Computed example of a mutant assay.
Amino acid sequence: MRGTWLGSADLADSYNDFSNAIKEGLSPEEAAKTRTFTGHMANKRGYSQFKVIELNEVEKRVVVEFRK
């Protein structure tokens, strides 16, 4: 499963939560897993591997891959 979070969209909650967690010192994978709604739901459904494929702060875009 793959998630794309955009910081400039109307629904930027996951991007903002992810970015704030990074600023607090979490790794990108840990931020995706523990601080975003998508991460919580993926983890709940058995996706235990989280990999940040793209982290573009200029374009405010994060792409995360979730695997079982």
Rank of each mutant, 00 (worst) to 15 (best):
A21G: 00
G7D: 05
E24C: 04
E65Q: 09
K68A: 12
W5T: 04
Y15E: 01
Q49T: 15
E65K: 05
E54Y: 13
F37V: 12
E57L: 14
E59S: 14
M1N: 08
V63G: 05
D13T: 10
L26S: 12
H40A: 03
F50P: 06
T4M: 11
E30W: 06
V52M: 03
H40T: 00
S14I: 09
W5S: 03
E29R: 09
T4A: 07
G3Q: 01
R45G: 05
L11S: 04
G46R: 08
K44D: 00
D10T: 14
E54N: 14
K51I: 11
E24V: 03
F66E: 03
A12H: 08
A42S: 10
R45C: 02
N16W: 04
M41A: 07
E29G: 12
V58Y: 11
E29H: 12
G46T: 09
G7F: 05
A21K: 01
D13G: 03
V58H: 13
Q49F: 09
N20P: 01
S48V: 13
S27F: 02
I53K: 13
N56I: 11
D13F: 08
Y47E: 02
S48F: 09
R35H: 11
P28S: 04
V52L: 05
E54M: 14
E24G: 03
G25K: 08
M1A: 11
M1K: 08
A21E: 01
E24M: 07
E54V: 15
F18T: 05
A21M: 01
G46Q: 11
F37S: 10
S8E: 12
S8A: 08
N20S: 05
K44C: 00
N16F: 06
K44S: 00
P28F: 03
A42G: 04
D13K: 11
P28R: 04
N20F: 04
I53G: 09
G7T: 02
S14N: 15
S19Y: 07
K68M: 11
N56E: 10
R45T: 07
K33M: 15
T38E: 12
F18E: 07
R2L: 01
Y47Q: 02
V62Q: 11
Y47F: 07
K44Q: 01
K23Q: 04
M1P: 02
R45M: 08
V63M: 10
I22A: 01
G25I: 08
E59Y: 14
K23S: 04
E57W: 13
I53E: 15
N43V: 02
M1W: 03
H40R: 04
M1I: 05
E59D: 15
K33P: 10
T36S: 05
